[in-house]
């Protein structure tokens, strides 16, 4: 079973490349039972939206 340290790495990598099916499944399983890592994953997505909107703000 993946631990949280590995899961957070996998979440981060998933934002940068397509995960392999096995990686995806193991991560999904972990996220299913781990609130902390699920929050981490949502926060990673939020950071992306924030960075993009920071970019728009700068270019306005």
């Amino acid at each position: 079973m993946m631990n949280c340290k590995e899961a957070t790495r996998m979440v981060s990598e998933g934002l940068d490349r397509d995960l392999a099916l096995g990686e995806k499944l193991r991560l999904q399983l972990h996220l299913f039972i781990c609130d902390y890592c699920r929050n981490f994953s949502k926060q990673g997505n939020f950071l992306r939206r924030a960075a993009q909107s920071a970019n728009k703000r700068k270019s306005d």
């Binding site: 631990n3 949280c4 340290k5 781990c34 609130d35 902390y36 981490f40 926060q43």
Partner: peptide
């Protein structure tokens, strides 16, 4: 030690 979040894991924003 087992690589899981301690008491201070990510919260809900």
């Amino acid at each position: 030690k087992t690589g899981h979040w301690g008491s201070d894991g990510p919260r809900t924003w």
